[in-house]
Design a protein around this nucleic acid. Structure first.
Lengths: 209, 209
DNA sequence: CATCATATAATCGTATCTGATTCTGCTATT
DNA sequence: AATAGCAGAATCAGATACGATTATATGATG
């Protein structure tokens, strides 16, 4: 594997499993030392992550995990709602046994973190669409919200509601009930959106009312 | 401006106005020499462009303008159809005089290339949505198809059909006729999709000639 | 004609250096 | 006590040089 890919995947994994918090600085020297590589590929990886919308890159200040406002979260979930149902609808009929097994495995996996398992599940269900660009794109939207989702999921002691929806969604996909599966996915995303937006709103409490 | 940004914008502009053809190699040394910078920021810019889906990056081989298959084009336009009507619908009511003027200017501009003018027009109409992520994303989809659109537009001696739709779309936006504008945009994109896909279907893509 | 060896060119990554910018903690002044 | 200013530390941006790796083209050999 490339040094660039190594650094890229390292940061990505850290975002998905909550090791990196929103706004946290990512020092080039530290990351390079940690991975045993030089600064050049680290900077390249950070540029990629910046283009992916996961990291900020301020000149002469460095990189940090990109923070989100409530408006950002609304936009991200609007995009996910525009793309993911389309992907699932296109995918279901072509899902292979392996895809469905991967999705099932992601639900029971104990090895990876919540964020990673969550994404592996969704990605497996979209595999049948054979639209790699779109899946990659959705993956970035997922990673962009992951640092926040991990935070408030930990607060609530794990989200069993989302988990339940996932199991039901998998069953609908296995049964090839396209319309019901797409509807459930939409609902799933809308609820996730509402939860994240709500958790981001509080700082905007006004004193005038 | 950054050396990285310089290189990034240079390549992006070259893609939009047809100076770079699909599959064409982008040599790090050449680009660095041309811009009077070193290879390091050039590589960083290429990594960003790769993450944006505009360029390929093969280990030990280098970067090239990303080529598209007909299936790729279908996917890209499916994404555009999923996002851009949503953006326009959200935007129209909030379009400022300046936004509308920018859009109008893009239609009559003689300074920039077809690809750039085209994108400036669409971007201006989406400004009212205040969804920067989505607009950036659509811009990348636009840039991804630009090298091909420029090619077959030149073959046909300029596309007056697309131009006509643009003018009508602008009028509808000025009159705030949201539904009709969104419908026209959808039609506009579907026709552009069909044209590009058709031009990609005959496997006559030969990059060496 | 097919295959192997070699030469060339390009990339990948490291190390090191310089300059510029930003951050931090201390001091002095009001 | 609070703030302004300043020196030093930390960090980043970028250039350059070097060796290693890999791909491609050329040519020799059977």
């Amino acid at each position: 594997m490339n040094a660039v890919e190594l650094a890229h995947q390292h940061v990505l994994a850290a975002l998905l499993n909550g090791d990196l918090r929103p706004g946290q600085w990512i020092r080039q020297d530290d990351l390079a030392a940690e991975l045993g590589i030089s600064k050049v590929p680290v900077r390249e990886a950070l540029q990629r992550l910046t283009a992916e919308g996961l990291v900020t890159f301020e000149t002469n200040r460095g990189s940090a995990v990109r923070s989100l406002t409530a408006a950002d979260a609304e936009e991200i979930y609007a995009l996910r709602l525009a793309i993911e149902p389309m992907l699932l609808e296109r995918s279901i009929a072509n899902l292979s046994i392996v895809d469905l097994a991967s999705a099932g495995l992601a639900l029971t996996s104990t090895g990876s973190s919540i964020g990673e398992a969550n994404w592996h599940f969704h990605r497996a269900l979209y595999a049948g669409a054979h639209w790699d660009r779109a899946v990659t794109l959705v993956g970035r939207l997922h990673a962009a919200v992951a640092p926040y989702v991990v935070l408030y999921t930990q607060e609530l002691g794990g989200s069993s509601a989302s988990d339940k929806q996932h199991r039901k969604l998998l069953k609908l996909c296995q049964a090839a009930k396209t319309q019901r599966a797409v509807d459930l996915l939409r609902q799933h995303l809308e609820e996730a959106s509402a939860a994240l937006v709500a958790s981001l709103r509080p700082p905007a409490a006004d004193s005038t009312s």
